[in-house]
Write a protein that binds this DNA or RNA. Sequence first.
DNA 1: GGATTAATGTGAAACAATTCACAAAACATA
DNA 2: TATGTTTTGTGAATTGTTTCACATTAATCC
Lengths: 217, 217
Amino acid sequence: MKQFTKHNTRNSLRRIFLYHGLLLRLKSMGVTRVFSYTLAESAGVTPEQVRKDFSEYCIRGNRRGGYLTASLLDEMEVLFRRDRVTNVILVGMGNLGQALSKYGLFIQRGINIVATFDIDPYKQKSRADNQVYSPERMQEIIDRFHVTVAIVAVPDVSAQEVCNELIGMGIRGIVNFAPVLPRVPAYVVVNNVNLSDEIESVIWSVSRMREKQSLFL
Amino acid sequence: MKQFTKHNTRNSLRRIFLYHGLLLRLKSMGVTRVFSYTLAESAGVTPEQVRKDFSEYCIRGNRRGGYLTASLLDEMEVLFRRDRVTNVILVGMGNLGQALSKYGLFIQRGINIVATFDIDPYKQKSRADNQVYSPERMQEIIDRFHVTVAIVAVPDVSAQEVCNELIGMGIRGIVNFAPVLPRVPAYVVVNNVNLSDEIESVIWSVSRMREKQSLFL
DNA sequence: GGATTAATGTGAAACAATTCACAAAACATA
DNA sequence: TATGTTTTGTGAATTGTTTCACATTAATCC
Ligand SMILES: NC(=O)c1ccc[n+]([C@@H]2O[C@H](COP(=O)([O-])OP(=O)(O)OC[C@H]3O[C@@H](n4cnc5c(N)ncnc54)[C@H](O)[C@@H]3O)[C@@H](O)[C@H]2O)c1
Ligand SMILES: NC(=O)c1ccc[n+]([C@@H]2O[C@H](COP(=O)([O-])OP(=O)(O)OC[C@H]3O[C@@H](n4cnc5c(N)ncnc54)[C@H](O)[C@@H]3O)[C@@H](O)[C@H]2O)c1
């Protein structure tokens, strides 16, 4: 088991995933060799940052030669268990849940949505591409596919309850799209994604920028 | 125009939006008064952090009395131009675009999607609830509704091109869902949301946690 | 092979964010 | 009005992150 030298930070982890995505694209474009400044450029950070991040996860290149795209990807994928696909489940097949479940490129990133759930019987209709289960079958499916990560796309009022149930059934990681922060035990990882906030913060930054600008007119 | 005392940080801005969302919920639950520790609890941060954040944006409460939910919300909404609704457009009506366009609660957060666009003529069919325009009409609609912010939900290969066009038409803020970082001039704000990364980082944190745990077994 | 060049890798320095600690204010109570 | 209590607001200390500066390494070119 590889040991990381230092306490790896939340930020550097985020960026590692960013680099990974960029590398996949670069590879598909036929780029065989990258340099810290290549990645830095596409990722919008400094070259030092890229190297420091790699360093933190014990990923190393060739001095002078940069990094070979393919072997860098290999190394990252082994390191991050991306060498095999991870089964996840998705709870809440409303607007957002359906969009996520139809997204074809998750599998390229090693994310396999093995089953989706909804309490609404109307949504549980089975079509060839898209079987939506009743939550009653959740435990069975979690066990069968060794699922440890779930995506939660239910309304805010149900989110805490759904998270509690999932954790009781063995889920240890949750990506939560409801605009509440679920309370969970310390051994469970939660990532809250709030799309309204993402949009609002841009709106606000733009209006701030305009104000500042108007001072110079 | 209110001046902020210090260089406000990216993180504190994020949290301010988080607090705002939480406050809306608290208010709707009939809570009239909150304390820094109330918010801290729901936001998963320390009370000092909440107060520091407020302090940074010149939001103040009553010593001993905490904050009145309603007036705190008022203050935040005025401060963040949330007192009026902002018109935004949405480009790319695929899986994700459709989910976003159907989301009914954006308007509660002052986000009004005034028009959606797609190059696919099949998606441009007009239904009562959901008119999808051809990109040809973008300039006209941006001008008519004074739109400065756009949501981009097109495939990665089109994202840069779409961003360029939008900026040329006067857009100054972009929420980008494509897994690429568009290159934009300094006067344009971009917020990149990468849903694959969000899921992957949870998968990885869970697998790391399990490894660490297994050392103790 | 030695000099030159172009990259990485990383400790040290600078900067940023968070937590601590406590003074200042507001309210309640007598 | 004095006293005690509660909670805010914030400078100072701490902790975390990024940038800088340069030693180190590998390839290339006389
Ligand atoms: N759609 C968006 O663009 C968007 C934007 C911002 C935030 N969100 C948030 O994401 C979440 C999902 O959004 P949406 O638009 O898909 O909502 P939605 O109402 O369309 O879908 C929610 C689904 O969850 C199901 N559900 C409710 N309780 C459940 C339970 N206990 N177990 C299983 N399924 C349950 C419902 O039947 C419904 O199908 C919400 O919390 C919403 O606030 C969505
Ligand atoms: N759906 C998801 O859950 C999900 C998850 C992660 C990332 N993403 C990313 O979000 C983006 C959208 O995802 P999606 O699943 O909705 O994709 P999609 O392919 O379903 O939809 C993309 C839409 O954009 C339209 N389009 C293409 N070029 C255009 C242009 N120049 N102008 C206007 N419209 C154009 C297409 O006609 C299509 O309707 C993609 O970049 C995708 O990688 C989506």
